[in-house]
Structure formats: structure tokens, C-alpha cells
Design a protein around this nucleic acid. Structure first.
Lengths: 104, 104
DNA sequence: AGTACCTGCTAACGTTCCTTTGCATGTGCT
DNA sequence: AGCACATGCAAAGGAACGTTAGCAGGTACT
């Protein structure tokens, strides 16, 4: 999840979406990057649970996928990291939960 | 800086150092990783300003480099990211400040 | 001299990430 | 039919990252 945010494009996406939901093509135009590139980053952000999407049909029939940020708050300090360490290390060996893509 | 923390080893280093300063070789043994590998990560952490080092001479003459974490606190939310965006984007085009290595 | 610690550097390899290019689908308007 | 705009996916190339192995230097003790 930190890895997901550790990218200029994805950080910008979060910043822009924080100002309101947008659909892919428009977001790509606003940011000045290719749609394909944006799509890849959006997928990563979605996998990390940082954004969510809803497919909607515009009045003129176009399928448009709207994205919006998922509210999140992470406090990063040496202590908080130390506190969460056991959680992370045990999670790797712990069976049960595990979706598919994972964080990385 | 987020990119620096987006790595299991470096995250662990911060966690361990949060418990007290240590010198390189000992830290490598504690973490169960090679000294060379640890050294690379320590350098990145230091460049990012997350840890600092002091070279000391032990009573028996051995040169030992002690590392300790730099206190830091980052609050990560969609809003805080949006708020900092202009800072980041302008920094790239702005002349003047700029150390050497940068964040990446 | 030989061994046991400490540090520092870098060449090299494999892997992952980022980005582009290209083609696929679908609807509506002229 | 042809154009405009929407989405989706995958192959391919280059760049960056992570890791190992091997070398260099130094001091101290047997």
C-alpha cells in the first residue's frame, strides 16, 4: 500500500480524485497522460483499496467508469511502524485470508 | 520518501532502530540479512533522511557505525496528499534547493 | 604471521516496474 | 458506412530496483 502510493502518477490521481469523482478518459485528459497508462495505475490503486469505481451509463448511452478516492488515514512514525511490524511478518505466514494480487 | 519506506527490509530497519541504535554488522545479524544488502538499504534510508549515522571507535579500536532513526511523522490522507501536490510539482521546475540524490 | 572482528565499494544478475503501442469491444450521431 | 468517444487488455522495450559475491581497507588478539 505504501508501495502503491510511492509513485508520482498514482499520487496525483489520488490528489485529483480528492477533488471529486471523474471517469477514466476525462481524468486522463486532465492529467495529461495516456489512457492506457492511467488505467494501469488506477487498477493498482483499486487493488490497494485506495480508490473505488462505479460503471455508469451516460444519458447518451456511453459506458463511463467513475472513480473516487476511498477515505483513508495512515499515521507514519518510527513507533507506529515498529508497532505494526509483527502484524506484517505474521500475515505472510498466516493462512486463511489472502485475496489474489496482494499488496505487491 | 514514500518510495524509501515502500520496502519490507527498510521498514524492518526502521522498526528495529526504533528500539535503539545499533551498528551495521550487529543489525545485519539481528535481521538475518547480509551486511552488503543492509548497507544498501541503510544508505537509501539515510539519503531520505529517515535515519542518521555516527561513526564511533569501540574501546578495543574497532570502527563501528551506529545508526538511529530520525523522528518523523507523516499523516497520509487523500486531502493531505492533495494539499501537498502543488509543492511537489512546483519543486521539480523550481531552481535553487535540491541536494543531490533526490527522493528516487 | 594468521585469525577475527569492523567498514566500504562495485560489478553482475534476475526481477519487477513503468510506459507505449496496438487492437479489441460497444454506443450514438451525421 | 464512417467518425467520435467510451472501455479493456496484452505484448514489448527500456529503466529502475533488489540481491549476491567478491574485493578493498583498518585494528586487535593469539
Amino acid at each position: 500500500m505504501l508501495a502503491t502510493l510511492a509513485n508520482p502518477h498514482r499520487l496525483r490521481v489520488v490528489a485529483v480524485l480528492a477533488g471529486g469523482r471523474k471517469y477514466v478518459s476525462q481524468l486522463a485528459r486532465d492529467m495529461g497522460i495516456s489512457r492506457a497508462l492511467l488505467q494501469v495505475h488506477l487498477k493498482k490503486l483499486e487493488t490497494a483499496g485506495l480508490v473505488s469505481a462505479q460503471l455508469e451509463i451516460s444519458p447518451d448511452g456511453k459506458a463511463m467508469k467513475f472513480y473516487e478516492v476511498t477515505p483513508f488515514a495512515v499515521h507514519l512514525t518510527p513507533e507506529s511502524i515498529a508497532a505494526v511490524m509483527p502484524t506484517l511478518t505474521s500475515a505472510e505466514a498466516a493462512p486463511g485470508r489472502e485475496e489474489k494480487g496482494g499488496d505487491r
